[in-house]
Amino acid sequence: MRFLLLGLGFISTHVALTLSELGEDVTVTYRNLNPVKEEYIKILNNKVNLVKLDPLSSEIEKHVKGSDTVVNFIGEIKGSEDRLKLANVEVPKRLAELSFNFGKTFIHLSGATSTGATGKNVKEEPEHCKDSLATTQFERSKCNGEKEIMRLAIEKGGDVTILRPTLVYGRYAAHIQFVTMYRLSKLRIIPELNLDMATVNAWSIGKAIHKLGKVTGRRYLYATECGSVKVSKFFEIMAESLNGGVKIPIPTIFAKLALPAEIRSLLRYSGTTYDCSKFEGYAGELKFDESEIKENVKFLKQLDREGKLVPT
């Protein structure tokens, strides 16, 4: 099958490698590059097709038309309301419409926080995005993007899956959360935080997309492992892979003040877990993989050594 992945980042890099190893024809698009994305290009080179492309240009049509399944990774977690609307609503809407017009399967990566739901073993709402509890501009933009995609799928009879990943980790992660943890671990600081987050391995997302790209119908589901992981565990694994460290108890209130805004906004989801049963049916066994964090440290060390440790 021909998979078209829109957006070059650490998650799409893992997914592209998974699909390629499973024998699929994969194309990954990017609009611009930074030092980290240049590393992703090197990792993917000779394994997938790489295309520089603006997702809002007319050129996108031929690539959608030439694929079987279109997967959207494009999105923003911060910025003005207009910027969030463009990345999280307008771009996915256009890609979905093109996909359905050409009879292609569309897979969209949203976020577990799109409806603002919290609690234990949160399940997908019976009616898509109804009675949303989203409070931030980011959350609302994600839910609005999902609504537009589902509306178009129903209107045009399209096949669509909306995936809502929890905290995604993987060996090539360079999001600000992991760069922040790496830098503190490098300083031998292991914050002991009373925070637990639901997680998902980027490789699991790749396995799920491989199966979801070949099914029909319309669905939305959380992409998550079962249960949650203590945030301090990430620091411990990273510190162990570096030079060790000293555990320092950090009251949650101080963590909220010190952490970057993009991370602070996720703290209200501490302790929230999501039902993993639907995702497990596509991704297979779900279990937190410490080895991926250790591999991630190697990748971040390489970026650090080369002066490319810039959060993406």
Rank of each mutant, 00 (worst) to 15 (best):
S99V: 05
H108E: 11
G157P: 07
G157Q: 06
I107L: 09
A153M: 05
G157F: 03
S141F: 00
S110A: 04
S99T: 08
S110G: 01
T135P: 09
A117V: 12
I149L: 04
D131H: 11
K104T: 04
L109Y: 01
E124K: 11
A153R: 08
A117E: 15
E97K: 14
K93E: 13
E139R: 01
K104V: 03
E127N: 13
K123E: 14
I149M: 03
G111Q: 04
S114N: 11
E97R: 14
G103Q: 03
G157T: 08
E127W: 14
S110W: 02
E97F: 05
A117C: 08
P92W: 10
L86V: 13
R140L: 13
V91E: 10
L95Q: 07
I154S: 12
L109Q: 00
K85V: 09
F106C: 04
C129L: 12
S141E: 05
G119K: 06
G116A: 01
N121F: 09
L133G: 07
C129I: 13
T135V: 14
E127R: 13
E139Y: 03
R151N: 10
K120W: 09
P126A: 04
K85H: 13
S114E: 13
T118R: 12
H128C: 10
T105W: 00
E97L: 11
A87N: 12
E90S: 09
N121W: 10
M150C: 03
A112F: 08
A112D: 07
A117P: 06
P126T: 05
I154H: 12
A96Y: 05
K120F: 13
G103N: 02
R94N: 14
H128N: 11
G157N: 09
A87D: 06
K130P: 00
E127V: 15
G157C: 06
P92T: 09
A117N: 14
E139W: 00
K142D: 05
N121P: 02
F106V: 04
T115N: 14
T136F: 06
R94L: 15
M150S: 05
